[in-house]
């Protein structure tokens, strides 16, 4: 936590001592880190692998547009809007789990995209620049930093407390968690809505950065795929893993941007190799070179369809997933 605070302070000074040339790539990296951490909160800590987080990127971005607020004050408002949208969405979604949940989140994101398209048109909307370019970019950068630091710090705090333990139990075995007194649906709902809130803030930052947003670009499933990629590469169910994953993804994006479709194919190949040979991600494999207060690294597995795999080993009756 102290380490995180230190890094945040150092990064907060970038616009003063490093200048705008450093802000651009760091905005990309920080938004990736935030997205990956929030996806890990959902999939790693609550066992809800989602392909629909782009819904909240879009809702955050379009909430910023709809309120007409200056990003300086508009980012938290967009975050709250995304979090509120997640509450009713969570009601049908959390009746599902595993692959069904993943597909349903995607469907819901498509519905959100169509709704926004109908309301604002396919061609996209522009954000009026509220400040002169240098200040504007610095504000965007600080928001990207605040959102990333808030997401990582928040998840770190959550994962150490009572809630985090319950969420990890749910991710491990929802049936046994319920039998131990954990309110499974409530635990998942909290994770889902918090992840949506953070992702909404990221959406607003992306919009404030680009000054332009289109339904087909922001509501793109590619975002969720990238989140999953970063989390799996770095190490799911660890706080550090998604950050490492974001760094690697960022590097690959830069190095391979010129190669068009080959870039996507390479990402796919890496993802497949990783799930085959390093299913716990890099952190899961090498462990933590530094000591963390959480004590030990979690043993990590691909959690998308844990119930199905468990059933094959189980000779007892199949308990239903608690709802």
């Amino acid at each position: 936590m102290k380490f995180l605070a230190l890094i945040t302070v150092v990064l907060a000074g970038v616009p003063f001592y490093a200048g705008p040339a450093w802000e651009r790539p760091l905005i990309d990296l920080l938004t990736l880190a935030a997205m990956a951490s929030l996806w890990n909160l959902l999939a790693g800590f609550a066992g809800l692998a989602s392909f629909g987080q782009q819904a909240y990127l879009g809702i955050g971005a379009y909430a910023l547009f709809a309120t007409g607020l200056d990003p300086l004050v508009g980012v938290p408002v967009a975050a709250v809007a995304a979090g509120l949208a997640a509450v009713p969405a969570s009601v049908p979604l959390l009746r599902l789990s595993g692959g069904h949940f993943a597909v349903a989140t995607w469907v819901l994101a498509e519905i959100a995209r169509l709704t926004v398209s109908m309301a604002t048109g396919n061609t996209g909307v522009a954000l009026p620049a509220a400040h002169e370019p240098l200040l504007r970019q610095a504000i965007t950068y600080w928001w990207a930093l605040a959102v990333a630091a808030g997401a990582v710090g928040g998840i770190l705090l959550l994962s150490r407390g009572r809630y985090g333990l319950a969420a990890r139990a749910v991710a491990g075995d929802a049936v046994a968690a319920a039998a131990s007194g954990v309110k499974v649906t409530w635990t998942r709902r909290v994770a889902y809505c918090l992840a949506a809130t953070g992702t909404g803030a990221v959406g607003a930052v992306l919009f404030a950065d680009a000054l332009y947003v289109q339904p087909s670009s922001i509501f793109n499933v590619q975002y969720s795929v990238s989140m999953m990629f970063m989390v799996l590469i770095g190490g799911i169910r660890t706080v550090e893993g998604p950050l490492l994953g974001a760094l690697i993804f960022f590097g690959l994006q830069r190095a391979l941007a010129g190669y068009g479709p080959w870039y996507l194919i390479l990402l796919g190949v890496i993802a497949i190799l990783m799930t085959l040979f390093l299913p716990r991600g890099i952190i899961g494999k090498v462990g933590r070179p530094w000591k963390s207060r959480a004590g030990r690294s979690y043993s990590v597995r691909w959690p998308l369809w844990p119930a199905a795999r468990r059933r094959s080993k189980d000779r007892g009756p199949r308990a239903r997933e608690p709802s």
Binding site: L165, A166, R168, A169, D173, A176, G181, V182, R315, G316
Partner: peptide
């Protein structure tokens, strides 16, 4: 209850497995 085929929270330590039950099931803090 216990399960015939044990269902531990594999990624949690033994202590954490039991702590979550004390916190959530027994409602202790």
């Amino acid at each position: 209850r216990t399960y015939q085929v044990p269902r531990p929270f594999a990624d949690l330590t033994v202590f954490e497995n039991v702590l979550v039950a004390a916190q959530q099931g027994a409602g202790e803090r």
